[in-house]
Design a protein around this nucleic acid. Structure first.
Length: 715
RNA sequence: GCGCGAUUAGCUCAGUUGGUAGAGCAACCCGUUUACACCGGGAAGGUCGCAGGUUCGAGUCCUGCAUCGCGCACCA
């Protein structure tokens, strides 16, 4: 039928065209100012004494576009925010952008590499400036993507993780923790990436299976096994298990002389029960400077530690004739020399083991002992554990509480120093003589208590040190204007992989700085995978960008596809067929509206008993649906309303109403259809905001306000 | 090695305090009658991983096993 034949709004051309609608609607919302709860109060759509509802957006990296996972995160948070806003609460969703320290620097380094440049040839200031400009530029693309999804966040409050006030506050936190004896300077073994020239936390490394040769060498009276002969120059301890009968004749502390790579050395026998008797010969020599396990043994027995490999991966003078060689080349030469000396016993050609690599470039991590800043985790973790055990923070799904607790019960001190430019500088001074570290916010200290010269620490903070304070920082802390109203935040919604990287740190810092929980609820979403449920990755070429999907199917359809059937904590297989299904749904609603509006106007306000039952049925559904949203069962709420609208309202109620002939009954039914239509459009708004706002502007209604700030349907 | 999760229709997954199995998609048959073919109607499809246990009653609770996935740790 020609749409012109229908006596309704000419805007209602079929089919629904999301591409034409969405940008226009978003602009209307943004111009209205209603994403900002202050404006809502000012204009009288929200009561000044209404309950606050706060979500802090996990700031997307400012260095690129959004990926499908962001699409899910933005959708979930937008649904929650829109729902609470319509309920009349002071709903605040604070957007952000993350400088993403290490990540951004890597992105930028790749760019430099392509241009044939290197950060090591640039002054730190120039590099910082370039990355800053790059990030500010990229940030706009990220923000545009967030808008495309329909996020109703308060852009006027957007925070960037390198805003000057943020930097200042983070540095103050460091100073406070230093004074509270929660931060110390420590000589500890760190994960060193020789390519990126920085230390990494355990969470920034991965294990990769590698096949290497495994060598057996004669070492005095013993045969030792190793996969890394190049570290062995300084080895002067042999370690074996105290219960190993094969070596019962040797005693702890005994010394002997062994012929070794560059001549004879004196070695000492150490007995330690951390040795695996089954592995190799049950005897090993240790290199405490370049191995975590060896380091622990050395600390336990108070053994000497010596650096063999420099921070670029080259051998130090201790290597004698091999000095200056890169370890990758030196290994074979060292083996050859030992072989010539008759010390090579045998070689296992295919030894498989897991090697720690940099999670970004897969360079093999070289453990190094380095002077770094560490946070004492135990006392902080204890408090975080207490509030969770007291039930003050709830997890969705609930089993993540276990993971949180496990993590808090097994903390190790946190290395917060990073040797990168792109981050918040650590406001500290280090003594050139005795290496003692001081916090120095005002940059005034010059001399150490030992008389040595104090030098500025050139390191920056691990990003999670500032991100951990984000619930407060995003609200303007230490300015308490917003903090007093909106903190603790209502819900922290983020990817389940952040259960240990981020969630505990936010809990810890909010307790430490403000003596408050950071959030009442934690909602953890799973990964968004491709339609075969495989992880999206650039190398597989199966990455789908949310914006491309929006271009084809519309934002509302994508949002529904991301939410329906997606329980918290579980990964989602996102298929185009699924999104297409919800594009059809959008069109269905469009046509339902066309149909209802094309019916004759009711002759009065009467509703008969038959129709009252339909209204009752609908109201019950909405009550149930509301409860589902309230309790974070968004996957179920969305499915229920979908089912009602399509298969109950359209397929049955509308079809049946076509058969009603009596004038009074017809009028009663039309009143009923209008009531249900108006209210399901309201109820569906958090899930499908663009379509519903557009329809709201077309249908007859009592309330002329934007749907964005209309009252939630209630019985 | 330690921990977590999953196992339900061909596929993707729901199933909220235990009460005779649900949705979407796909496949099948039929159908253009006042919105919508981006549609409607209909039918089909499951010993709810396996084995025990608790119970009047178990997809749901308990124990064990198997398979898959994920996380953490890790061998010189």
């Amino acid at each position: 039928m020609n749409p012109k034949d229908i006596n309704i709004d000419p805007k209602l051309l079929s089919p629904y065209n999301p591409a034409e609608t969405e940008a226009r609607i978003y602009k209307i919302w943004e111009d209205s100012g209603f994403f900002n709860p202050d404006v809502c109060i000012e204009k009288g759509v929200t009561n000044a004494d209404a309950k606050p509802f706060t979500i802090i957006m996990p700031p997307p990296n400012a260095n690129g576009r959004l990926h499908a996972g962001h699409g899910l995160v933005m959708t979930l948070q937008d649904i929650m925010t829109r729902y609470h806003r319509m309920k009349g609460e002071k709903a605040l969703w604070v957007p952000g952008a993350d400088h993403a320290g290490f990540e951004t620097q890597i992105v930028y380094e790749r760019k430099l590499e392509k241009e044939g440049r290197s950060r090591f040839d640039m002054s730190p200031e120039d590099l910082y400036k370039e990355i800053y400009n790059f990030t500010i530029e990229s940030k706009q693309f990220m923000e545009a993507d967030v808008r495309r999804i329909g996020a109703s966040c308060d852009w006027s409050r957007e925070k960037f993780t390198l805003d000057p006030t943020v930097v200042k506050t983070v540095q103050q936190t460091f100073d406070k923790m230093f004074k509270d004896d929660l931060i110390y300077r420590g000589d500890r073994i760190v994960n060193w990436c020789a390519k990126h020239q920085t230390s990494l936390s355990d969470l920034e490394t991965e294990f990769k299976e590698k096949a290497d040769k495994f060598y057996y060498f004669e070492y005095g009276p013993f045969t030792i096994g190793t996969a890394r002969p190049e570290t062995k120059f300084g080895d002067k301890y042999v370690v074996m298990h105290p219960d190993d009968k094969r070596y019962a004749q040797y005693r702890h502390g005994d010394k002997f002389t062994a012929e070794w790579i560059n001549g004879p050395i004196e070695a000492t026998i150490i007995k330690d029960d951390s040795i695996d008797m089954e592995f190799g010969t049950g005897v090993m020599t240790i290199t405490p400077w370049h191995s975590n396990v060896d380091f622990d043994i050395a600390i336990k027995h108070n053994l000497d530690k010596e650096q063999i490999i420099d921070f670029k991966g080259k051998l130090l003078p201790i290597a004698g004739e091999f000095e200056g060689q890169h370890i990758s080349k030196a290994r074979a030469l060292i083996v050859e020399k030992l072989d010539k000396k008759g010390l090579l016993v045998k070689v296992d050609e295919a030894y498989k083991h897991n090697v720690k690599v940099c999670y970004k470039c897969e360079t093999v991590i070289e453990p190094q002992i380095k002077d770094q800043w560490f946070v004492k985790m135990a006392p902080l973790a204890k408090r975080a554990l207490e509030v969770v055990e007291a039930g003050k923070i709830k997890f969705y799904p609930s089993n993540y509480e276990k993971i949180f607790k496990y993590w808090m019960e097994n903390t190790i001190d946190w290395n917060i120093s990073r040797q990168i430019i792109w981050g918040i500088p650590i406001p500290a001074k280090i003594c050139e003589k005795c290496k003692k570290g001081y916090s120095d916010l005002e940059d005034t200290l010059t001399t150490c208590e030992c008389g040595g010269n104090l030098k500025k620490d050139t390191d920056t903070f691990d990003t999670w040190f500032s991100s951990g304070q984000w619930t407060l920082l995003a609200l303007g802390y230490p300015d308490l204007k917003d903090v007093n109203i909106y903190h603790p935040t209502s819900v922290m919604e983020t990817g389940a992989d952040l259960i240990f990287k981020w969630i505990p740190r936010m809990v810890i810092f909010a307790l430490y700085l403000k003596d408050e929980i950071a959030f009442k609820d934690v909602y953890l979403n799973g990964m968004v995978n491709d339609e075969k449920n495989q992880k999206m990755s650039k190398s597989k070429g199966n990455v789908i960008s949310p914006v491309e999907l929006i271009d084809v199917y519309g934002a509302d359809a994508l949002r529904m596809a991301l939410v329906v059937g997606n329980t918290p904590g579980t990964d989602l297989a996102l298929s185009k067929d699924k999104i297409k299904g919800y594009k059809n749904f959008a069109n269905k609603i469009w046509n339902i509206t066309r149909f209802v509006l094309s019916n004759p106007e009711p002759i009065n306000n009467e509703i008969n008993d038959t129709d009252k039952k339909l209204i009752e049925e609908f109201d019950l559904l909405i009550a149930d649906y509301t409860k589902d949203i309230e309790e974070y069962r968004l996957y179920m709420a969305a499915e229920k309303i979908y089912h009602y609208v399509w298969h109950r309202f359209a397929d049955e109620i509308l079809e049946e109403s076509k058969l009603v002939e009596d004038a009074n009954a017809k009028s009663s039914r039309q009143n009923t259809l209008l009531y249900i239509l108006e209210n399901f459009i309201k109820a569906l708004h958090p899930f499908m905001p663009f379509l519903t706002e557009e329809l709201w502007s077309i249908i007859l209604r009592s309330d002329k306000q934007l749907l964005l700030v209309s009252a939630w349907p209630k019985k």
